[in-house]
């Protein structure tokens, strides 16, 4: 009888010890998982803010100076020629500028940040790719996409901005 009781306690102890170990392992995994999710969430929020600001500056402002023609000397890059019209000369200048100059001028500053811009113009039945420039996001951890609609040469135009880290 006494031996049986001792065995019971040993079994009890083993089970409870296993449960405690499992709980500790799961709690640790959950904690690591939560830290990773928080980091991703913070990164997404920052990128959302950046992409929104850059898209606003591009579509709704002419940049500074207003008549800029060279991305490397402009303080801020805006493409608007007023009332949601994109200036084709400024767009061509931005698309042919160096990637690093564009990053600085667009205000996308920070280690590991990148951007890509696609400009598609309505061609009668669908949007036709017209400009595509910037970096490649294939190795990025977090990518945020922001789309704006404007007019280029009086045609409906979709500007897709990707920002990543």
């Amino acid at each position: 009888m006494g031996r049986r009781k001792a065995q019971l306690f040993t079994t009890d102890l083993s089970i409870s010890f296993s449960v405690v170990v499992i709980v500790i392992i799961l709690t640790t995994l959950l904690w690591i998982y939560s830290l990773e999710r928080k980091a991703i969430y913070r990164s997404q929020s920052e990128l959302q803010q950046i992409s929104r600001d850059v898209a606003y500056t591009l579509v709704d402002t002419p940049g500074y100076p207003e008549s800029w023609t060279d991305v490397s000397t402009a303080s801020a890059i805006g493409l608007s020629s007023g009332n949601h019209e994109i200036d084709p000369v400024k767009l061509a200048a931005l698309s042919s500028a160096s990637y690093d100059d564009s990053l600085d001028a667009l205000g996308i500053i920070g280690s590991g940040y990148g951007f890509h811009i696609d400009v598609d113009v309505y061609g009668g039945s669908a949007f036709t790719p017209t400009y595509s420039f910037g970096g490649n996001s294939s190795a990025a951890n977090v990518v945020v996409v922001h789309q704006r609609y404007a007019l280029l040469n009086h045609s409906w135009t979709r500007l897709t901005l990707k920002v990543w880290q």
Binding site: V59, N83, H84, E85, R148, Y149, A150, L151, H154, S155, W156
Partner: peptide
């Protein structure tokens, strides 16, 4: 954007 684009053109 939609309304502005549709109005302006």
């Amino acid at each position: 954007d939609m309304l502005t684009v549709l109005d302006v053109n």
